[in-house]
Design a protein around this nucleic acid. Sequence first.
DNA 1: TTTAAATTTGTGTGCGCACACAACTGTAAT
DNA 2: ATTACAGTTGTGTGCGCACACAAATTTAAA
Lengths: 381, 381
Amino acid sequence: MCAHTTVIIALSYFSLYVKKAKKTTIQDLADYANVSIGTVDRVIHKRGKVSPTKQKKVEEAIKHLNFNPNLLARTLALGQQFLICSLLPKASNPNSYWNLPKQGVEEGVRDYRDYGFVCNPFEYDLFDESSFIENAEAVIKMNPNGVILAPLFEKESINFIQILEAKNIPYVFIDGMVPDQNNLSYIGPDLKGSGHLAGKLMSTILDSSDDILVLNFVKGLENSHINTIEKGFREFFGSSQETRTGKINTLTIPSVKEEDITRELTKYYIKNSGTKGVFVTNSRAHIIAKYHAMYELSIKVIGFDMLQANILEMKCGNIDYLISQRPISQGSMAIKTLFEFFVHQKSPLKIQHTPLDIIIKENIDYYINFNESREVDQTNT
Amino acid sequence: MCAHTTVIIALSYFSLYVKKAKKTTIQDLADYANVSIGTVDRVIHKRGKVSPTKQKKVEEAIKHLNFNPNLLARTLALGQQFLICSLLPKASNPNSYWNLPKQGVEEGVRDYRDYGFVCNPFEYDLFDESSFIENAEAVIKMNPNGVILAPLFEKESINFIQILEAKNIPYVFIDGMVPDQNNLSYIGPDLKGSGHLAGKLMSTILDSSDDILVLNFVKGLENSHINTIEKGFREFFGSSQETRTGKINTLTIPSVKEEDITRELTKYYIKNSGTKGVFVTNSRAHIIAKYHAMYELSIKVIGFDMLQANILEMKCGNIDYLISQRPISQGSMAIKTLFEFFVHQKSPLKIQHTPLDIIIKENIDYYINFNESREVDQTNT
DNA sequence: TTTAAATTTGTGTGCGCACACAACTGTAAT
DNA sequence: ATTACAGTTGTGTGCGCACACAAATTTAAA
């Protein structure tokens, strides 16, 4: 203890102000309570085997000295690893939507690498349930500490979840969710709200007599939550003051092949020439934007997410609004949520809605690369 | 080395998959290069005194084994403290703008507490240069490791900065900046762009014949960057396709007292009854929103930032658009930037523009409390 | 050739914590 | 009174790293 004091004096001589922020350690607690650090340790971790007298003294010391354990030291001592498995749809190409949450997860893991966080990504085919099942089994085999899941296939997800719960593995949903589950948290948009917002935006750029098309580019079962989005969209116009005279139609194109899409759109537009606005319920607004440009149609377009292709079309003026649900943040927040849960022992909110960013030509540049802004890796000084 | 191997086997027996993520340590490097950790240390820190042969061997080991130092251990060993001083305007009340960056700074510091980050906030009077000078001197006296500065008083800021540079203390600007300085980074909005965006939004809700008022609530020298914002606003209409026939006037009210404001507004509106939209160049849009409500004027309002008062007025329909420049993020990013610089040795981008979020009634809820969403502090399991 | 002085290497300590283990207390059984 | 045995309490080790210092090696000087 004597030596300890000397050190503090020597340091405070060196830099007077800095050292007063000295944090209290378990040794400080032990000194204060006149016990050994072993006893302090027992109190902190509730291991029992401590006499009531000392128990109380230590607890008082913790309060009095405002003790907060140094998580760096704790992590170092425990040497634990946190294996996180993500189970997300496979991105069809380098610029497609599902790269973004994945990128966010990677960023998050990088932040917590030293805390022993490791991520093992699994990807399933968006159009193939059996691929989901296979990958889910692979995840289970890894016996991870935590799971990040985009539960696009509801039924299969529930099966998966049940195994996770049996093995006591916490999981968070991102991008979409299955209701009434014991997930640690859901991180993603309020789907209904996003449809509602799209409705509002559409109403500001159209007259009430204009016809609207709700366009679903979908294949197979991908649409688990698209229904919710469209419902929100229609609800907006239902509850709106202004009485619309224009129609709102829905067109679902169950294909992503260009010729199919072109044919279906042409069929639709020839029949519905009063269409003045299109709401695309996923991230593929760029497809119809290109179509409009090709046939010189001046039809308003609202879609989701800042894919490279969407950014381009917006800058050309072929997309009017994009609603971003911060896919990258979803990934990094999922990791951060698990980190807080495991390391800081904090239970997250069960629902963490990501903001719905309204993107137009005038503010799009500030969103591009915002997440990557700190990735410059140049040694300083 | 033998003992070491045994440990790995024993652990991998226990949990097969987790352990394969074992990270390489300086001891691994030493073993690989047939030197002691001391030599490895010298190579890593470029302390010299290493023979070329071993130098190369160690460097090869670093590459071959993909060594990344454990920053937790490093931080723990160094036991260093990073004292950050923030120098921001004082918030006039608990709900005013300047609480938000401050809050962000606090959040950031909490994240990096264990890394020895400590913040000492200084606040100056927004309307009093001498208060700035006093506080700047106090900051210098603290001899901090880094500084976060909102340089509202340009001249005084430059003086302050020069001292910082002489003492080799890195500093970041938030919210506003002084051009051509050696700041580590600027974190905040693109001011001109924010005016531009406001112009765009205004144009979507007004006819081209409507008159517009640009309203500056200002006192003293607070307006260093308000000029830039207004310039961006006017530039939008200058460059816009549509030829406006309506006027754009500017009114500057050099007071924050209610009776002054009411009088000036009334004087203005009586003379300019064609006014259909108001652009408030700072966070005080709620003031004029209340005025409009009182006198039953249906005039569109666009302003900045999600203060409690602005949120309320927006929900009542008295504010049409709010542009948020993410003040909380600015604070936390400033800390994160300094953290990356000090701990990870990463130089940040010199300009980190925060996104300009477009807030309307339909998406405002998703922004409220988004930053606080992970603050639930309940022990789990 | 011996000694001194660089130069290059290796070792020991501590950062704050968790955990295994050793060393104490006291009480009940023999 | 002696042993046994819980119930307590204290000590030692290592996590990965930085840094002070000691040891070993080479080189220069005498």
